[in-house]
Design a protein around this nucleic acid. Structure first.
Lengths: 144, 144
DNA sequence: TTAAAATAAGATAAAAATATCCGAAATAGA
DNA sequence: TCTATTTCGGATATTTTTATCTTATTTTAA
């Protein structure tokens, strides 16, 4: 569905958001301890998300990753998927045809477009903030 | 979403079904010409589908692949996905957790389960026969 | 000014997915 | 029985994804 890199990224950002909500920065070692992701690989992904300005990073003692108030409010899953995996999930054909559209549809086109749009809609309407709050409250978990 | 192997397999089976409907067997060279898939790789996938008794194969001259009347009626996309990709798509966690469930849900669990079930439902309710008919009529295409 | 604490970036490694190749086995038909 | 045709099955190759390692660079507290 989404790549492993993307899964690691989303889990990491949820943790970062939860920390940011408490005014704390999150360091890599801390993030991967709570999200159960591999450290070096997650660092790569977070670097990418920093470039895309989805999160912010600070070097040096007391550094780490954080989300500012604006990002904390506005970032949703779709932003992260887009940054890491690109838009393949949202636009690719369900049967792998490179040019499949309403004019020349593959046999599953009509049904697939509906699902694809629901996934996109779900990603866009699911904010990191709401996920971070659910994590913070203990209602949901990030690693298992 | 589904693997390339699975996409090649579904397209191939749609073509085989359309041929079977006309009482003809389909050979690999013919299948890949119409489905635009790589020959050797598709042969591998079809071997797997034969083992799972989704299609039937015959060696020798006038051989090839076919679907008998019963399979032509009953096989749906879910059967092929299950045979090639297993049930990962239908049961895996949306954030990659190995143990995520209603009791210990990941932050996207509730929303993801809905989408996952819709995909499964779509796969189960979409028969190869209906896709083969849509292909045969020219309403849909298998390669582009 | 310096050492500590952190990210950044590039090289490398391992694993999985995708794809190819080729000899063996089966079969229909002459 | 011989031959041409076709799938089968195992070995191999390539590409992509996932992951690690090493070194450099930045920042900041003391």
């Amino acid at each position: 569905m989404v790549s492993k890199a993307c899964e690691h990224g989303i889990r990491a950002v949820i943790y970062i958001a939860a920390q940011s909500f408490e005014g704390k920065r999150a360091k890599i070692a801390d993030i991967v301890q709570h999200s159960g992701s591999p450290e070096a690989f997650t660092a790569k992904v977070l670097g990418e998300l920093t470039k895309h300005r989805i999160i912010q990073s600070h070097t040096g003692p007391r550094g780490g990753f954080e989300m500012n108030a604006e990002k904390l409010k506005t970032v949703h899953i779709g932003h992260i998927v887009q940054a890491i995996d690109g838009d393949a999930l949202y636009i690719n054909c369900g049967l792998g045809l490179s040019q499949c559209n309403a004019m020349y549809p593959c046999p599953v086109h009509d049904k697939y477009v509906i699902i694809r749009n629901e996934i996109k809609e779900m990603h866009i309407t699911t904010t990191i903030f709401e996920l971070a709050m659910a994590y913070r409250s203990g209602k949901t978990v990030l690693s298992r």
